[in-house]
Amino acid sequence: MTLRKHILQNNTCNVVLSPVSVQLVLGLVAAGSESETLKQLLSFLKAESTDELNSLASHLVNHVFTGGSPSGGPILSLANGVWIDKSLSFKPFFSKIVDDVYKAAYDVLDFKNKANEAADKVNAWIKKETNGLFKDIVPRDQFDDETTKIVFANAIYFKGLWANKFDMLNTRKYDFHLLDDSSVHVPFMTSTITHYCISAFDGFKVLQLPYKHETDMRDISMYFFLPDAKDGLSTLVDKLASESGFLERHIPSVMERVGELRIPKFKMSFGFEASKALKELGVCAQCTVHFRKT
């Protein structure tokens, strides 16, 4: 959330960021690091040791991202990947962590002499793990620089249906307010259901929209944190980033009667070069990290 706040300060566009992806990729980097690089990564990730990071990664891989039923429940899957240049080799302890803890795919490629082939293999893996949503994420010229020796990748795939579907006939256009103080006229999904799990707090509201699931599966929901003020997003993000346990303390649990509920239909895509942001936040290790989310 600290990284999310930092990125938002320098953007007026939509920002899509997965904290879990950042956690797992940097956790993998930390597992193979030492000295000052490891110290900086542990400080940024607020962890005491790589054992702590590996324990969290194991929990996420084995218990949180446990698939789902294509027929009756949300599909939630996770994949990690590591590729190294043929001039290097995996140390046994690192191979064990990659295999046993992160359940990651890994391979040895020729980055220097077969850069296009290496990029194609990484992109093919990403495409497969995201059911075709991501294509050609890694540029072919990414490996032209002789300093590129290792590539880490994380892919999260989610697909779900609302527990209470929105009727397409009730879709209407309304103004949606942007961060640059302008607005756009866009379609809003409109619900006629009168009761939702929603709570109002000082300066913002939180809405829970559950996804359809089978009786033997865990509940998965989307939560909307909506500031009362049109320009209140940055203030809300400050609270999210600075107050420990903020999300957990503001999850609604009681069904309340609401008036008309409108949610904009949205499709968001965002990419950024994380190295600069991480350096500004105290991670100065010599590595380049790219993140793209859709």
Rank of each mutant, 00 (worst) to 15 (best):
K173F: 10
S89I: 02
W83H: 11
N123T: 06
N123V: 04
L76T: 07
F266I: 10
A115P: 02
T190L: 06
G259M: 05
H195E: 15
R172D: 07
S77V: 00
K96I: 10
F93A: 05
V16A: 14
V25G: 03
L247P: 05
Y102F: 14
F188V: 00
K121S: 15
F166L: 01
L56F: 14
A79D: 02
L76M: 14
L24I: 02
E146S: 15
L38G: 01
K91T: 12
Q40K: 08
H6S: 15
A118C: 00
V237D: 00
S269H: 08
M168C: 08
D110Y: 06
V122K: 07
F90T: 01
V237P: 06
G160S: 01
E34N: 14
H63T: 11
M1S: 12
L236N: 07
P92I: 07
N116W: 02
S69A: 13
F176H: 10
F65Q: 01
D180H: 07
F176A: 11
T171S: 15
A30N: 04
E243N: 09
C284G: 08
K46F: 06
T130H: 07
P187C: 11
M217W: 09
I263H: 10
K103D: 10
P70C: 04
S253N: 11
V16I: 08
A155R: 00
L76Q: 06
A119V: 09
F166S: 00
S242E: 13
A119N: 06
V122F: 03
L247Y: 02
L278K: 02
S244Y: 06
V151H: 00
A57I: 01
K128I: 04
P70I: 09
E243G: 02
I137D: 01
S95Q: 14
K135H: 13
K39A: 11
F246Y: 15
T288Q: 12
S221T: 04
Y211A: 01
G27A: 05
F158L: 00
L133D: 06
M189W: 11
F93S: 13
S33P: 05
A30F: 09
S191G: 00
V16T: 08
E243M: 08
D216F: 13
M168N: 10
V254M: 04
N80A: 09
S58M: 07
S71C: 03
I84F: 09
L38M: 03
H195Q: 12
V98R: 04
D202T: 14
V151K: 07
P92E: 06
P252A: 06
E273L: 13
R172A: 12
G73W: 04
E146K: 15
R257H: 03
V122L: 09
D144K: 14
M268S: 14
D216Y: 07
Q142A: 14
W125V: 03
P19M: 10
V206M: 02
R140Q: 08
K86L: 07
L278Y: 05
S275H: 03
I220L: 14
K265G: 05
V98I: 15
L178I: 02
M189A: 12
V283Q: 03
D120I: 12
F65K: 02
M222T: 10
T147R: 15
K39E: 08
I220H: 03
K135W: 11
V15Y: 07
M168P: 05
R218K: 14
Q208N: 03
P92D: 12
L178P: 01
R218F: 08
G68L: 04
Q9R: 14
F111W: 02
D216I: 10
